[in-house]
Design a binder for these strands. Structure first.
Length: 901
RNA sequence: GCGAGGGUAGCCAAGCCAGGAAACGGCGGCGGACUCAAGAUCCGCUCCCGUAGGGGUCCAAGGGUUCAAAUCCCUUCCCUCGCACCA
């Protein structure tokens, strides 16, 4: 049992109120945003893949955006908070196979079910903007955009060696390949292998013709603009920088007599005089050419291509018998084919400098190759040139050149510049980023709008024939599009002859690269989106989603945005997402990632049934800041639930007239100030995405209100304002309970549309609070230390005006005691002033304090708390009223305390 | 190896950017109120010593700057994540 009968009777019943208010929001169109709205706050969660059920990660993600959207809406902002479905993709095909249905029906069922679950969570979306990427109304624009990209020269068809997953029977992008555990291979030393990100099957490599978006054309801007994305987490920016992987260097041609000139790429052209051998990647054309006449080389290449990457030693390689001419020294250096040289890095060929590169050094030692030092530390470097022995270890720092002919003494940096000219090379920038292969040999995706004609080659499907819709799904082992004979055979749009459609579909990351633009005009028929509105509403102000999309999705979306902006489909939108938050993982109660195998998963559905959506939302938001990981905790869920019931009961009792009320007094002032301070604090925390702090402030306020109601005869206006404020501050996170309270208190309309509380802390709030808290602590301290059993009277006396003046002087003066004693007005206090000045002189700092009257007022407002705690009378006195012996102990910020029992 | 982010009381975790109170909050533990009792709720305490608000030692370790350091700087150790035979 989670709720007692009594609680249910007096509290709210989530199974009744949640559907009720969900319907009320729907009826009132609360979350709808008008097309004419000007530059709304765009709050977006990464749309879900249509797996059919929400998991806790989704719930957390969408609770964050929903709470923020509701907060902004209550503050009077226009808010765009849409939802849609990332609904193309392989799993739907698998599910269709398993269940003897088709991907479309399966996906549509999943969407219906997930939409219902989102609604049950109380998430407020503008459902009129709902999109599903698997609908022709959406994916036709993928096709249209593909053609526009092609016009811009951003589409290429290239043969490429691609990652092939034998289990999914599909091509994978590099980003979809992960390092995984090697399966049970007898001789395996546990080395990592490349596996499919979805099914963990080790991947193979195949050479195929593919469609590519040439994202590398934008590499430089994608990289550079990261610096200005201040609203993004550093780690995501860093991951993108790594992925783009810019390297600046130079390329220089080496001659290998009998073969072509070979271009190398290097970032250390300054070390060229130290090049003592030359290395080719096994996949390099010249290596292949040499292999034709050299069995040993052929064998090595064969072996290297078969081997898993990490099986081969760093020093593995084979001497080709050929020599390259070092253009710097004119010497012939041996040419090796070595696996550590990667075909797709740089030019796939390099000159090796064992003296100044760790890998080259290791290789040279293993193959007994000369090591020649050509750089030594500069005079002001940390290292002493005499300590450097490149025979032992490579010296990889920059320095000054030696053994480099006429260039000795040149600094590395200058040498790199000079040598580009001298050796007829060129400056070159290399990127790790590859072009984006979008072809997938699958059914459930966007058909690529191309037709292949034997005479005309590849021809675009004319715009008027778009969309190219998917044919009926057929169960087949290969690609169903290949089997759709009728669909596949068409007339060539150019010559009218027999032709066939492209049977590849697009990577689903194409869908998600612009969906945030479609939300701005989901029914627009002339283009993917309305340029004016999208340009006004973009960029997304708050984008929230998982870290797993740090590179692929976010980089592709940035790429699309830039291309669209350059193509004038957008105006002045260079980046899609201003602020990005990656929500942390939801862990099971055992602190481990929720998983079926561990059996530590918690189903959102069950929590909604048992405790209600508000409880789930509140727990999630209180447990940790959005970007931190969060461990499930049954106790804390329970605690969130009871808290909501308590707040509701507080409101209910008041509304039912069960609370006796009285006129305003000091206590009411105290409570009123706390209400204002809480609103101010909570607002600031909401703005900063620190929802847990905001909610903590609300809990404190509710606790105070309950004491106020319990221990005193409260002022009706103040109590009601307190309850309303607490409920409103809670409403973004627990919206159903918020509405229920709003209604109980007799308000018309919806709290979702009500005004956010005014948020200004009272003047001197922090100082007054500190005074009160310190004083309360001191009283406790005394009672406890002295062991007073039953205090009867607690007398507090604030410091006199003149002591405040002493502090003021002390604050300014270098020499406190003389400064004070020179003050004529203070001289009348004689010894006392001198003593106090001496005390102060020993202190490093003076806290801000209230005036004597301010201190007295603050203590009087808070006296009820002390009375309640100690069950004793509390008397607050000015210095003049107090007994001389007591008053003299008071200091500004620290009243004198006398306790009688 | 390179890069990013961390190491705060029994545990989780704020504070650090903008230096100024043994350091928010939660969990756990202890004591008290309410109750026949339990639960729920509420009020305290929870680094050490202390019979009037005091003293001592503290924020991974060590050093430095400062009147003053969890906060700024340097060094070392450890953790987490990302990238990586990258020429």
């Amino acid at each position: 049992m989670t709720t007692t009968g009594e609680e249910r009777e007096r509290g709210f019943d989530h199974t009744a109120i949640e559907p009720h208010w969900q319907a009320a929001w729907e009826d009132a169109d609360v979350f709808r945003i008008d097309d004419g709205a000007e530059d709304p706050e765009y709050v977006l969660a990464m749309f879900p893949y249509t797996s059919g059920s929400l998991h806790m990660g989704h719930v957390r993600n969408y609770t964050i955006t929903d709470a923020f959207a509701r907060f902004e809406r209550m503050r009077g902002e226009n808010v765009l908070h849409p939802m849609g479905w990332d609904s193309f993709g392989l799993p739907a095909e698998n599910a269709a196979e398993e269940r003897d249905t088709n991907p479309r029906d399966w996906t549509m069922q999943c969407i219906d079910s997930m939409r219902e679950q989102l609604t049950e969570m109380g998430f407020g979306y503008d459902w009129e903007r709902e999109i599903a990427t698997c609908e022709p109304e959406y994916y036709q624009w993928n096709q249209w955009l593909f053609k526009r990209f092609r016009e811009e020269g951003l589409v290429e068809r290239q043969g490429a060696e691609l990652n092939w997953c034998p289990s999914c029977e599909t091509v994978l992008a590099d980003e979809q390949v992960e390092e995984g555990e090697a399966p049970e291979v007898p001789h395996g030393d546990g080395g990592a292998v490349e596996v499919c990100w979805r099914c963990d099957t080790p991947i193979e490599h195949r050479e195929m013709d593919q469609w590519f978006f040439t994202i590398t054309d934008y590499a430089e801007e994608l990289l550079g603009a990261l610096d200005d994305l201040d609203g993004w987490p550093n780690n995501v920016r860093e991951m993108q920088r790594n992925w783009i992987g810019k390297q600046e260097g130079a390329s220089v041609a080496f001659e290998i007599p009998g073969y072509d000139e070979v271009d190398i790429f290097t970032t250390r052209l300054d070390t060229i005089y130290g090049a003592t051998y030359f290395s080719l990647a096994p996949g390099h054309p010249v290596a292949q050419a040499i292999a034709e006449d050299n069995d040993e080389v052929a064998e090595y290449i064969e072996m290297a291509e078969q081997a898993d990457e990490d099986d081969l030693d760093v020093t593995s390689g084979v001497f080709t018998g050929e020599y390259a001419v070092n253009p710097a020294t004119g010497e012939e250096i041996p040419v090796y084919v070595a696996d550590y040289v990667l075909t797709d890095v740089g030019t796939g060929a390099l000159y090796a400098v064992p003296a100044h590169d760790d890998r080259d050094h290791e290789f040279a030692e293993a193959h007994d190759i000369d090591i020649v030092q050509v750089v030594e530390p500069t005079e002001d470097a940390d290292a002493d040139p005499d300590d450097i022995d490149v025979q032992e270890a490579a010296y990889t720092e920059d320095g000054v050149l030696v053994n480099s002919g006429e260039y000795d003494g040149l600094h590395s940096e200058d040498a790199r510049e000079t040598f580009v000219e001298v050796f007829d090379g060129e400056h070159r920038t290399e990127y790790n980023l590859r072009d984006w292969g979008i072809s997938r040999q699958r059914y459930w995706g966007t058909p690529i709008p191309m037709i292949h004609c034997d005479d005309c080659g590849y021809v675009e499907v004319p715009d008027e024939d778009l969309p190219v819709e998917l044919p009926e799904f057929v169960h087949t082992t290969g690609n169903p599009l290949d089997a759709a004979e009728e669909w596949k055979h068409v007339d060539c749009p150019d010559c009218g002859g027999d032709a066939v459609r492209e049977t590849d579909t697009m990577d689903t990351f194409v869908d998600s690269s612009w969906y945030f633009l479609r939300y701005t005009s989901p029914d627009f028929e002339d283009a993917p989106f309305d340029t004016d509105r999208a340009s006004d509403w973009m960029p997304v102000d708050q984008y929230v989603g998982g870290i797993e999309h740090a590179v692929m999705h976010l980089l592709y979306a940035r790429f699309f945005t830039k291309v669209l902006d350059d193509g004038d489909l957008l105006e002045g939108v260079r980046e899609p997402f201003t602020n990005l938050t990656n929500q942390g993982m939801v862990l099971g109660e055992d602190g481990h990632k929720m998983s079926k195998s561990r059996g530590n998963g918690v189903s959102p559905q069950r929590i909604i049934e048992e405790y209600g959506a508000d409880t789930a939302r509140l727990f999630i938001m209180e447990a940790a800041q959005p970007e931190k990981e969060l461990a499930w905790s049954a106790e804390e869920v329970q605690s969130a639930h009871s808290f909501l019931q308590n707040v509701y009961r507080l409101a209910d009792d008041y509304a039912a007239g069960a609370v006796a009320t009285d006129e305003a007094d000091d206590i009411a002032d105290y409570v009123a100030r706390e209400i204002d301070a809480t609103a101010a604090r909570a607002t600031e925390e909401y703005e900063g995405f620190r929802f847990n702090h905001a909610l903590q402030a609300v809990r404190e306020l509710v606790s105070l209100l309950r004491r106020y109601e319990d221990a005193t005869t409260p002022d009706a206006d103040v109590l009601e304002r307190g309850i309303t404020t607490a409920a409103k501050l809670l409403a973004p996170v627990a919206p159903h309970v918020g509405e229920e309270i709003w209604e109980r208190l007799g308000h018309d309309g919806l709290m979702a549309e009500a005004e956010w509380p005014r948020a200004e802390a009272p003047a001197d709030y922090a100082v007054a609070r500190r005074l009160v808290e310190n004083t309360r602590e001191d009283v406790r301290d005394i009672v406890d230390t002295v062991g007073i059993e039953n205090p009867e009277t607690i007398t507090l006396a604030v410091a006199p005006e003149w002591k405040h003046r002493v502090v003021d002087i002390a604050r300014e003066a270098d020499n406190v005691v003389p400064a004070v004693m020179q003050n004529e007005e203070l001289q009348q206090y004689g010894e006392a002033a001198a003593d106090f000045a001496k005390d102060l002189a020993g202190r490093a700092q003076y806290d801000e304090t209230l005036s004597p009257a301010g201190e007295r007022a603050a203590l009087e407002r808070a006296a009820w708390l002390v009375e309640r705690e100690f069950d004793a009378e509390v008397i607050v006195l000015s210095a003049e009223e107090a007994d001389e012996s007591l008053a003299k102990k008071a200091e500004p910020g620290r009243p004198a305390i006398d306790i009688e029992s």
